[in-house]
Simulated assay, not measured.
Amino acid sequence: MRILRRRNAMISLTAAVLSASLVYGMYELQRNQIELDDTIAIIVPKRFIGAGERLKESDLEFKMLPKAAYVSDMISKLEHAAGKETIIPLGQGEPLLHWKVDDYYFQPKRSESTFQIPKEYIRSISNGIRAGDKVMIYASGEAAPSMRIFSEAVTVASVKSSGNVEIDSIENPNLFSLAEGNKQQMYASRREANGMIDYLNLNLSEEQWLQLDDLCKAGELKLVVAYSPESLNLAVGEEGDRS
């Protein structure tokens, strides 16, 4: 009998512990659900990001924010931030706002400056190049093999005629189409634009400019500036991302 009573006591104690655990588990589940209902996930940087940097998915993460603190300008979808450039520096963990990033930001990055490329340095420029485009830079000479100078494409700050006028289509400016991600209109703008490029300005780092200048100043090598499809791919990939 004593063994039976002891067994019953253990069963009762186990049942009480299981019941208490179940009640506590249900309480935690309900509390977590209430917290989820009262919060919203927003995008924040994982690290400090300087102005002019292009955001990567690895730079970003989600952060739960009380709905009462949420404002409509906060970005809550990863695809609305990844691939865009920062207009101002971003602190780690701060809410990412739409006005702090842009699809195409033509100002040089923090590590860059805008350099006007001397005309005598240039052998040829693709006629379709416009401000905001990405271009590949090659060096070409009679006594030396041609080569690509930079592994990555660089950004065109402006292309102007001899009258210091930006070359573009008057009726359908390329910049408007570029900002809207309209690839068909971008193509049409390049077809309609008319003018010889006399001045080319590129956003380069100091190291890039010194490398380019060192190659070309003797006159043996000159630059070939080629339009990069990255410009069009960015516009197509980001089309419709604006909210």
Rank of each mutant, 00 (worst) to 15 (best):
I42V: 08
I42P: 04
I42Q: 01
I42R: 06
I43Q: 01
I43N: 10
V44A: 08
P45A: 06
K46C: 03
K46V: 00
R47D: 05
F48A: 12
F48T: 10
I49W: 03
I49T: 11
I49Q: 03
G50F: 03
G52A: 08
G52Y: 00
E53W: 08
R54G: 04
L55W: 02
L55E: 01
L55G: 03
K56E: 15
E57F: 05
S58Y: 13
D59A: 11
E61A: 12
F62W: 10
F62V: 08
F62C: 09
F62L: 14
F62D: 00
K63P: 03
K63I: 02
M64P: 03
L65G: 03
L65M: 15
K67H: 08
K67M: 12
K67D: 08
A68S: 14
A68G: 05
A69R: 10
Y70S: 10
V71A: 09
V71L: 03
V71F: 04
S72T: 08
S72M: 10
M74N: 04
M74T: 06
K77R: 15
K77H: 13
K77Y: 07
K77W: 06
E79P: 02
E79K: 13
E79Q: 12
H80E: 11
H80S: 08
H80M: 10
H80Y: 06
A82G: 02
A82Y: 02
A82E: 08
A82K: 06
G83D: 07
G83R: 07
G83Q: 05
K84N: 00
E85I: 06
I87L: 07
I87G: 02
P89H: 03
P89Q: 12
L90N: 00
L90Q: 11
L90T: 02
G91M: 08
Q92A: 09
G93A: 12
E94A: 15
E94M: 14
P95C: 13
L96S: 00
L96T: 05
L97W: 03
H98V: 05
H98Y: 07
H98N: 10
W99S: 12
D102P: 09
D103F: 04
D103E: 10
Y104S: 13
Y104M: 15
Y105A: 06
Y105V: 10
Y105R: 12
Y105L: 14
F106A: 14
F106G: 12
Q107S: 11
Q107R: 14
P108R: 13
P108H: 09
P108L: 13
P108T: 03
P108V: 10
K109G: 15
K109F: 06
R110W: 06
R110T: 11
S111T: 09
S111R: 06
S111D: 08
E112Y: 09
E112R: 05
S113W: 08
S113N: 14
F115R: 13
Q116T: 12
Q116V: 11
P118I: 14
P118A: 15
P118E: 14
K119A: 14
E120T: 08
Y121F: 15
I122Y: 04
I122G: 00
R123L: 14
I125T: 03
I125C: 07
S126P: 05
S126K: 09
N127H: 13
N127I: 04
N127M: 12
G128F: 04
I129Q: 10
I129W: 07
R130Q: 02
R130C: 11
A131E: 07
A131P: 01
A131L: 11
G132C: 13
D133K: 01
K134T: 04
K134W: 09
K134D: 09
V135R: 00
V135T: 05
